[in-house]
């Protein structure tokens, strides 16, 4: 029986889990936290993403239309992007899915679509922003988010990026607190941030935009942390991790070419937690 379930779960596309978790987070955010997600934006993003995916599929003559990937991107965008203009939400979805088809190197897209769209919109308009503080820092909520996200990851078998990022980020904020002589409550509070966990579990972990090797992914996560720390604690700008990911993404092909020898296929079952 147990083996059967295991077989079933390993055969099932991990993205279904991801969709379930992101949808649950969206519902939690709307129903319990009430943090200003507009339904018209959510619908506009979902429909536009599917439409652009369809157009892209036809244009580059992919064998079949895949609705899952744009759905995941739409959910991430809906969770993180705030705007008071529905046209900007539509534009964000176009940019996100469009970037997958246009910005490619060696058959991989360079940027995580939702990440690319978020940063583009923040640069393009004053009316698009990310509300990173709106998840609150209730420890239990953070814990629940982490666990849920973790399930998604173990199915996706790419936990290194997330774990390495969270590990490096924790080392960074605790290290900074030690250097400043701050009480540990401060780094703990910085880690109990819903947006940070969503980023770690659902954005940086994207198997299509991270290096091919485990070592490469850990190196990549460390780089993203370093850049995020610089943005957040030296330039004092919000959304450090989101900006850092976009800045580091072009390095993925470089890391891949440097660490070519130790490539492994991600479909292989790997003894990840």
């Amino acid at each position: 029986m147990e083996t059967k379930i295991r077989q079933l779960s390993s055969n099932l596309d991990p993205r279904y889990f991801q969709i379930v978790v992101l949808s649950a987070l969206l519902l939690y955010g709307v129903a319990i936290l009430d943090f200003g997600i507009r339904w018209q934006n959510a619908i506009a993003i979902m429909l536009t993403a599917q439409f652009v995916q369809l157009v892209g599929t036809r244009a580059v003559q992919l064998p079949r239309f895949d609705p899952l990937s744009p759905l995941i991107t739409s959910l991430s965008l809906t969770l993180l992007l705030r705007t008071d203009d529905v046209r900007l939400a539509i534009l964000a979805a176009c940019i996100a899915i469009g970037s997958k088809f246009v910005l490619r190197v060696r058959n991989k897209h360079i940027f995580n679509p939702a990440n690319f769209a978020l940063v583009s919109m923040m640069l393009l308009s004053d009316h698009a922003w990310v509300s990173s503080g709106q998840w609150g820092s209730a420890a239990i909520g953070a814990f629940a988010l982490a666990c849920l996200g973790f399930i998604v990851l173990t199915r996706a078998k790419r936990a290194e990026t997330t774990l390495a990022f969270l590990g490096c980020y924790a080392a960074l904020v605790f290290g900074r607190a030690l250097w400043l002589g701050d009480p540990l409550g401060i780094p703990l509070h910085q880690l109990q941030n819903g947006a940070l966990l969503i980023f770690a579990f659902f954005m940086i972990s994207d198997p299509r935009t991270t290096p091919n090797t485990a070592a490469g992914r850990i190196l990549f996560a460390a780089l993203v942390t370093a850049v995020a720390g610089t943005i957040q604690f030296i330039y004092f700008q919000p959304n450090g991790p989101i900006l850092a990911l976009i800045l580091c993404a072009p390095l993925v092909p470089v890391i891949d070419s440097l660490l070519k020898g130790r490539n492994y296929r991600w479909e292989q079952p790997k003894g990840v937690l």
Partner: peptide, 14 residues
């Protein structure tokens, strides 16, 4: 100039 201000490290609630 642009719009509403909120805290980035704590929840801002109406």
């Amino acid at each position: 100039r642009t719009g509403r201000v909120e805290t980035t490290n704590y929840r801002t609630v109406k």
